[in-house]
């Protein structure tokens, strides 16, 4: 298995992207987008994580198996969030028994 060696410039670009995205997070925090506040903040965070995983952690150049395992981590996070929301979003719906 050959090991991918990234040029230093890649790491510099990753660093600058992360700084830029962090600055964006701070900048948007000064505006109120209502319900979109969390969506935007989490979207930026997700973009940052993706950059780190793909380039800094070399997943972009890894074998399909490594990609599968890294992807599984994301899928499992989705399971956690999805089923937890499945509780929170349906709590207020009241069940009325059908007439007998």
């Amino acid at each position: 298995m050959s090991v991918h060696v990234s040029p230093t410039s890649t790491y510099v670009k990753v660093f600058l992207t992360l700084i830029l995205l962090t600055a964006t997070t701070v900048w948007v925090a000064f505006y109120d987008f209502g319900i979109l506040n969390n969506v935007i903040a989490l979207g930026i965070a997700f973009a940052k994580a993706t950059v780190v995983v793909l380039f800094f952690m070399h997943v972009k150049w890894s074998s399909p198996l490594i990609k599968l395992i890294a992807g599984a981590g994301v899928v499992w996070l989705v399971i956690l969030i999805l089923f937890t929301l499945g509780d929170y979003l349906t709590r207020t719906i009241h069940y009325t028994a059908p007439p007998i």
């Binding site: 499992w76 089923f83 069940y95």
Partner: peptide, 18 residues
């Protein structure tokens, strides 16, 4: 096993649908 954890929470405020 990762899709069943709510069975520990039937008597918490978890929604009946979940």
């Amino acid at each position: 096993g990762f899709f069943v954890w709510g069975h520990h929470m039937f008597v918490s405020t978890q929604s009946v649908y979940a």
